[in-house]
Nucleic acid binder design. Structure first.
Ligand SMILES: [Zn+2]
Ligand SMILES: [Zn+2]
Ligand SMILES: [Zn+2]
Ligand SMILES: [Zn+2]
Lengths: 163, 163
DNA sequence: TACCGTCCCGTTACACTGTAACAGGCGGGG
DNA sequence: CCCCGCCTGTTACAGTGTAACGGGACGGTA
């Protein structure tokens, strides 16, 4: 029942690992990891592409048991505030976070226009450049958004083979 | 009739300079700088804070002569495609561009949560870090979004004096 | 002149995104 | 028991963005 990684079918993220991390984090902070919040996280983790709030609501709904988008938004607020998912400003969509960000490093998102895959990474050099720019401007940052749209390596190869 | 900078009332941008640059650019590229496009650019340049498409439509409308938001979106598409305005993904709002970006440097936006002011700048170090991260990931970029929300220097001082 | 294609813009309709406000359930602490 | 905080369901609504159609202006061409 406990495989090390990618336990359930072909999904792009370590669903069980993400849920385990969320449970531990909520226990530590005295927060409630409710069924709605867990299922929301699971739905996001079960896709390789970022999902919109209404897509998530649809996947959470059962025949006769609809989940309203507003409930999804509240669950997403909780998950983003606690660093379990990220919101992509350029897509109005959400992806799970598989980083710790314990050192305060901000995320860099590489979003493929062709296949929709999102790669989250960090860069000390970008971080340093941002900090220097902010210090020079006397600007106190609260949140940072770095999102690059383009083509991932796999899609470039596929395009080269087909085109 | 030709002041060097900030010619018309108290606006945050060099409105006449932006319009002149747009006219020259359209002449060079064989594009039409229509009245709607010019007035849209002027409205954006006449504010220190970023404006949403519907705000722009309202400011362009006269009693009995309404400008629909969809027309504003088309004008904004034209202006953004030609590098005359930028869209802030985190705000769904638009600001004029007072940089050339001729070397392909991407913009870094510092957005103040308190006063709403937006400072556009560039950074060779951030650029370098982004390029290195992209090369390492084998990712071909098409557009780059770097937006920092926080407090500008003036608002920090004001807060310190008041608080 | 008439014909044609392109671009711009007005209009309508619609889908998607996000929030405010109110009500009920549930659990812990008096 | 009541009170209170939190979560969730429900409704309503505002804001954002695009698709589709039609008409007018304008330049080229026969
Ligand atoms: Zn992350
Ligand atoms: Zn791809
Ligand atoms: Zn710019
Ligand atoms: Zn400010």
């Amino acid at each position: 029942m406990d495989q090390p990684a990618h336990p359930d079918h072909a999904c792009g993220h370590d669903r069980a690992g993400l849920v385990a991390r969320a449970e531990r984090l909520c226990r530590e902070r005295g927060l409630l990891f409710t069924p709605l919040r867990q299922r929301t996280l699971e739905v996001i983790a079960g896709e390789t592409r970022p999902l919109g709030a209404y897509d998530i609501a649809e996947r959470l709904s059962l025949p006769g048991r609809r989940v309203a988008a507003v409930s999804v938004y509240r669950a997403l607020d909780f998950l983003t505030e606690n660093g379990l998912v990220h919101r992509l400003a350029s897509r109005n969509a959400f992806v799970p976070c598989d980083h710790s960000h314990s050192g305060g490093e901000s995320a860099v998102f590489l979003i493929c226009r062709a296949c929709g895959a999102v790669d989250e990474t960090t860069s000390a050099e970008i971080e340093r450049g941002l900090n220097r720019t902010l210090a020079r401007a006397g600007f106190r940052p609260a949140s940072r958004i770095v999102e690059i749209e383009g083509e991932c390596g796999a899609c470039q190869e596929r395009e080269g083979a087909e085109g």
